[in-house]
Design a protein around this nucleic acid. Structure first.
Length: 430
RNA sequence: UCCUCGGUAGCUCAACGGUAGAGCACCCGGCUGUUAACCGGGUGGUUGUUGGUUCGAAUCCAACCCGGGGAGCCA
C-alpha cells in the first residue's frame, strides 16, 4: 500500500490508504479522538475509535503533539461532519517524531511573532493558499511568454554598476573590486532583445532603499520582458494581455485558495482587456479635481495612485510622465519632448504600481547625452551604447513586480506574506 | 531619515497611581462525533532597558532599544 496525498483522497473512497504527514490539531472525547493530519496537499480529519484500534495506538494518539510527524493508515470515508467532506477512519498510526511544544498555536498571533517563526508559519493554511497563488502566477507568466515565443534570458545578479542611478544598491566585494546586487536586468535584456528579438528575464532583484511600507521588500522578484521593434503602444498591449492572462489563470486554477483568503473574486473577474489609459496630464487633472494639491511635474505618491486607481474597475495605465522624473533611458515623445513614452500600470483597490514600462531611447547621441546628464560613467556603459551603434531599433519593455501582483490578486494588505522568506528593512531572519 | 501608534505569562490581550489577571498553549483528570471541541484543577511574570517623580509606578516623566503603520523612494 503506497502513499496517497490528501488532495487525491476522493479517488480512494472506501479503501485503506497510507497518508504521510504532520499533526495539525487533535481533539479527544474519551473513547474517540480526532486528529487533523496535513501532508502539504491538504488537511484531513482522522478518526480514532478506541474500540477499533489497538490500545497502543490509541494511547499513542493521546500523546501526539501539534506538528508531530506521523504515518497514518486508514479507510477513506465520505462524511458530511468532516471538514473537507472526507475523513480517515484510522486503523494504524506510526509516530515518526514527537514534536516539541509548537510555538504557533491555533489561536491568534501577532505579525512580529509569526515573522520570527516564518519557517514554521509556512505550514499554515493561509500561507499555503498565498504561496500556491504565487506559484500559479509564476507558471502563468512563464506559459504566457513561452506561448508567444519569447526566449528566457537570465541576467546577472552581480553587476558592476547601477541601472538607474538614483536607487540605492546593495554593495558587495568582488575580489577586492566593487560589485552590486542587480536592481534590474533591463540593460542586459536590451542586449538580449537585439540578439533574440523577444526576450524576458525573471529573477530576484535587490534594492537597498530604506523603505518601510506595505509595498516594499529589499529582495523581490521582477519579470522584465523586452521586445525589439515594439513601440510604446505595443508595449502597453503586451502588459494588459499579460496581466489579464495571469488573473484568468488564477481564477481558473486557484479559486479555492482565493476563497480561503476571502478574496472578492468579482473584483478580479472584471480584469479583462482593454485596460483604460490616461495620460499623466489627465491624471494630474483628475487628482486636482479630487482635491489633491499637486502640480504638473511632480511624481505621484501612494495615496495619489490609490485615488486614480479607485476611479476604474480594472488596472489603469498612466502614460507619458514628465521626462525630468523618469529614468535616463526612456524615449521622449517625438511630439512632446517634455514627456517620455512610458507607462505605469496601477492595480485596483489601492495596490499601486505593479508595472513600470517604457520605450527606450534608440538614438546613440541622445542616449549619450542623457547618461552625461545623469552622471553615469561612460566606460561602464560603453557596451550599452554599442547597442545603439550596431543596428539600433525602436524597442520597449517593462518590469512587473511579482510580490505586488500576488498581494493584489490575493487581496493582502502587505507584500511580506507573498514571498516565502521576506527581506524587509529590519528583517534578515529567518 | 522623519511622522505616528505600540512593547505586561510561550502566544493574544486586560489591569491606566494602591496585593499583576483572563483566554489559548503546556501538565493532571473527565467526556463515543469533535469542528480554533468542551468541562474541572494546576504550572507559568525582573510589566522592553536605564534613570527620575511619588509613601507607593505596569500605570506619570525623560532617554534609549525593539516592533506595527505611514512619508520619501520605488516594482
Amino acid at each position: 500500500m503506497s502513499q496517497v496525498y490528501i488532495e487525491n483522497l476522493n479517488e480512494h473512497e472506501g479503501k485503506e490508504v497510507t497518508v504521510k504527514g504532520w499533526v495539525y490539531n487533535r481533539r479527544s472525547s474519551g473513547r474517540i479522538q480526532f486528529v487533523m493530519v496535513r501532508d502539504g496537499t491538504g488537511i484531513v480529519q482522522g478518526v480514532v475509535v478506541k474500540a477499533e484500534v489497538t490500545p497502543d495506538v490509541f494511547a499513542l494518539v493521546e500523546e501526539l503533539t501539534q506538528e508531530s510527524s506521523v504515518v497514518v493508515k486508514g479507510i477513506v470515508r465520505s462524511d458530511d461532519r468532516a471538514p473537507g467532506g472526507y475523513e480517515l477512519t484510522i486503523t494504524d498510526l506510526e509516530l515518526v517524531q514527537l514534536a516539541e511544544d509548537y510555538p504557533i498555536t491555533p489561536k491568534e498571533h501577532g505579525t512580529e511573532f509569526l515573522m520570527d517563526h516564518r519557517h514554521l508559519w509556512l505550514r499554515s493554511r493561509r500561507q499555503h493558499a498565498i504561496l500556491r497563488v504565487r506559484h500559479e502566477i509564476i507558471k502563468a507568466i512563464r506559459d504566457f511568454f513561452y506561448e508567444r515565443d519569447f526566449v528566457l534570458i537570465d541576467t546577472p545578479i552581480l553587476t558592476p554598476a547601477a541601472c538607474e542611478g538614483t536607487t540605492t544598491l546593495f554593495e558587495t566585494d568582488y575580489f577586492d573590486d566593487q560589485a552590486f546586487l542587480a536592481q534590474s536586468g533591463q540593460l542586459y535584456l536590451e542586449a538580449a532583445a537585439m540578439a533574440f528579438g523577444r526576450v524576458y528575464c525573471f529573477g530576484p532583484t535587490f534594492r537597498a532603499e530604506k523603505s518601510k511600507t506595505r509595498r516594499h521588500l529589499m529582495e523581490f522578484w521582477m519579470l522584465e520582458p523586452e521586445v525589439a521593434y515594439a513601440d510604446h503602444e505595443d508595449n502597453m498591449r503586451l502588459q494588459e494581455d499579460l496581466v489579464s492572462f495571469i488573473v484568468q489563470r488564477v481564477l481558473k486554477h486557484r479559486r479555492a485558495e482565493l476563497q480561503m483568503l476571502e478574496r472578492d473574486i468579482s473584483r478580479l473577474e472584471k480584469v479583462v482587456v482593454p485596460f483604460p489609459r490616461i495620460s499623466y496630464d489627465e491624471a494630474i487633472e483628475r487628482l486636482q479635481k479630487a482635491g489633491v494639491e499637486i502640480e504638473w511635474g511632480a511624481d505621484f505618491g501612494g495615496g495619489d495612485e490609490t485615488i486614480l486607481a479607485e476611479q476604474f474597475d480594472r488596472p489603469v495605465f498612466v502614460h507619458r510622465y514628465p521626462t525630468s522624473i523618469k529614468a535616463f533611458y526612456m524615449k521622449p515623445d517625438p511630439e512632446r519632448p517634455e514627456v517620455v513614452l512610458c507607462d505605469d500600470l496601477l492595480a485596483p483597490e489601492g495596490y499601486g504600481e505593479i508595472i513600470g514600462g517604457s520605450q527606450r531611447i534608440d538614438e546613440p547621441e541622445l542616449l549619450k547625452q542623457r547618461m552625461i546628464e545623469h552622471d553615469l560613467a561612460e566606460e561602464t556603459y560603453a557596451w550599452y551604447l554599442d547597442l545603439r551603434r550596431y543596428g539600433s531599433v525602436p524597442h520597449s519593455g517593462f518590469g512587473l513586480g511579482l510580490e505586488r501582483t500576488v498581494a493584489w490578486i490575493c487581496g493582502l494588505p502587505h507584500v511580506r506574506e507573498t514571498i516565502p522568506f521576506p527581506r524587509l528593512i529590519n528583517r534578515l531572519y529567518p
